[in-house]
Amino acid sequence: MIFDEFTIKSLIRPVPGFPKEGVTFRDITPLYQSPRAMRMVADSLIQRYVESPVTHIGAIDARGFLLGAVLAYELNKPLILFRKAGKLPADCLREAYSTEYGEAHIEVHRDALKEGDQVLLLDDLIATGGTFLAAARLVSQLGAEVYEAAAIIDLPDLGGSRLIQDAGIATFTLCAFEEAE
């Protein structure tokens, strides 16, 4: 199936003023309601990483879990969950990060990764980059490396993809929305 950025973008619903005034939320639920578009997204990412040195898929809470599980299954890689604080049951490492809405924490199990592991970090979108960078710091604390940070959507006006790249982490997204779109 050929990737069609227009189809993907047309199925991402803008929701102005959510979760607060001045923010336009990019809702991916219509994308997930289209089997054709979802297959297009999954197949594009699978093809990108099928022959890569990635050893683990690191899915970021919560929308990253949806696509992360598909990629982990299709690529036959372990799925590592980066969860909001207090959601994982075993011994965890925690990292703080800033979002466009405030400050939060993300956690990963202390035994999830080891030295030499190559992690693909995956979420639905790159906004300010805070969650990705916090997850990358956790990957590093566990002795592993981030291979790439990937998402369906980039919001370049928020500067997250640039911050991630400035931290030495490659980024990949399937589409981007400028603020005016």
Rank of each mutant, 00 (worst) to 15 (best):
F82P: 01
V41I: 12
E103R: 14
P53S: 14
S44I: 09
V23F: 10
I60P: 03
Y97R: 01
I60N: 10
T7I: 15
P78N: 09
R39F: 13
D61V: 10
G86Y: 02
R83Y: 05
P14N: 12
M40P: 07
S98N: 11
V50F: 05
E5L: 03
A90K: 13
P35R: 13
V70P: 00
F3V: 11
L88I: 13
L71Y: 03
L66C: 08
P35L: 08
S34K: 04
F6E: 15
S10C: 11
E100H: 06
P19G: 14
Y101E: 13
P89V: 07
P14C: 02
A69Q: 11
V54Q: 04
G86S: 10
P30H: 10
S10A: 10
E74Y: 15
A42K: 09
A96M: 13
Y97F: 12
F18Q: 05
R39P: 04
E21T: 09
S52E: 09
D4H: 11
K84A: 11
K9Q: 14
P89G: 02
K77E: 03
S34R: 05
M40L: 02
E95V: 07
I8P: 02
T7K: 15
K87D: 02
F6W: 11
G102E: 12
F18Y: 15
A62F: 02
L45S: 06
V50Q: 15
I80L: 02
E103G: 08
T99P: 07
V41G: 04
P19M: 07
R83G: 10
D91T: 13
S44G: 13
A85R: 13
G17L: 03
V54S: 06
V70I: 14
E95G: 01
Y49G: 06
Y101Q: 14
I28Q: 00
Y97C: 00
R83V: 09
F3K: 15
P35F: 11
L93K: 08
P89M: 01
E74P: 00
R63I: 04
V70A: 08
P35H: 11
I28W: 08
G58A: 07
E103F: 05
N76L: 06
I60T: 13
G68I: 04
I8F: 02
E51F: 15
P30I: 08
R36Y: 12
V70M: 11
L11T: 08
Q47S: 12
A90P: 00
L66E: 07
D91C: 09
F65A: 07
V15W: 00
V15C: 04
R39S: 12
F82I: 09
G102A: 14
M38E: 07
R26E: 00
A85H: 13
R26G: 00
E95S: 06
A37Y: 00
F3I: 10
A37Q: 10
G64T: 08
I57Y: 04
M38W: 14
L75Y: 01
V70Y: 00
E21Y: 02
S10Y: 05
V15A: 00
V23M: 13
D43F: 00
C92F: 00
A59S: 15
D91A: 14
T55I: 09
M38L: 15
